[in-house]
């Protein structure tokens, strides 16, 4: 896909996020929107997957360690053809297969249940170990929040991945700088993130989370990196694409009301129109 096609797709993913969270009257739009470009790149460009065969044995795996941003994953999976986009409106509803946090038994395309922060990365490490044991060449991707890396288990997993030279593993940190109680540096600073992963024997790449050239280059570099896992630290804007949500901690875990929903969709429609004209100025 060209960058423009990816941008258009990511914009559709963002519309699905906002629509799902609005319909659920709850959920986590901020961190879903900040990672929307990465979700899009992974499922539309990077990963070897097949929506018609979600459990294909040699597929690449993805674990959403920051499981609360399930709307981002669900919207991406829906747009990729795993299930109808229309079903995003059932998010968090009683009886829906789109649970508040990812559930691998319920939702096609979800490789691991997650939501309790710090645990998904360990499961991703386990998948990478299985790949090495079986001499399979699938790759494993996991997405973490920057607040999430305050969890100690993240560093247990990172230490193991580095020590075991899991070069089939890519750990992505969504550095939108905000967590529920405020800025990550004010709550309990996680910085420097890159130096920490370097110290845990990762190959580290810093990128702009909303620049597809940088995402593409980082993924290529990760693939070419042998003998160590890769960490991609992506600087992002929480709530990206929705004017009133951007860079606001308050939109971590809150749904827009009807009026706000209309504004959010208008924002995204406008971005869509710009993209249809051939790209953002």
């Amino acid at each position: 896909m060209t960058n423009l096609e990816l941008q258009k797709t990511a914009n559709e993913v963002r519309k699905g996020i906002v629509t799902a969270v609005h319909s659920a009257k709850a959920g986590h739009p901020g961190g879903s929107l900040s990672a929307a470009d990465m979700f899009t790149y992974l499922y539309f460009e990077e990963m070897n997957i097949d929506p018609a065969d979600p459990r294909k044995e040699d597929r690449d795996r993805f674990v959403l360690s920051k499981g609360h941003t399930a709307p981002g994953l669900y919207s991406t999976l829906a747009n990729r053809g795993y299930f109808p986009v229309e079903d995003l409106k059932t998010l968090r509803h009683l009886g829906s297969y789109l649970q508040g946090h990812p559930c691998m038994q319920e939702t096609p395309g979800v490789d691991m249940s997650s939501g309790s922060l710090g645990q998904g990365i360990s499961a991703a490490v386990g998948m990478a170990v299985a790949g090495k044991m079986d001499q399979k060449d699938y790759r494993v991707y996991t997405l973490l929040g920057d607040g999430e890396i305050q969890e100690g288990q993240v560093w247990e997993a990172a230490m193991f991945a580095g020590a075991n030279k899991l070069d089939n593993l890519v750990v992505i940190v969504d550095n939108n700088g905000l967590q529920i109680d405020g800025k990550v540096e004010d709550v309990c600073s996680v910085y420097p993130i890159d130096k920490k992963f370097e110290a845990f024997n990762f190959h580290v790449i810093n990128i702009d989370a909303h620049n597809f050239d940088e995402i593409r280059a980082a993924m290529k570099e990760a693939k070419e990196t042998k003998g160590m896992p890769t960490a991609i630290i992506m600087k992002s804007v929480k709530g990206k694409g929705v004017s009133f949500m951007e860079d606001k901690a308050g939109w971590h875990g809150k749904a827009p009301n009807d009026e706000e929903y209309a504004i959010a969709m208008a924002d995204l429609e406008k971005i869509g129109e710009e993209l249809a004209k051939g790209g953002m100025a």
Binding site: R61, V63, M104, D111, M112, G118, Q119, G120, I121, S122, A123, A124, V125, G126, M127, A128, V129, A130, G131, M133, D134, G152, Q153, E156, A157, M159, F160, A163
Partner: peptide, 28 residues
């Protein structure tokens, strides 16, 4: 020896690794 993994003193991570292995068909 090829099917034994010492995770070091990190039980919580060991548990998650086992979960990941199980999703790939292992019996950990």
């Amino acid at each position: 020896p090829d099917r034994f993994i010492d995770c070091g003193i990190a039980e919580c991570n060991m548990t998650g690794i086992a979960a990941g292995l199980a999703t790939c068909g292992k019996i950990p």
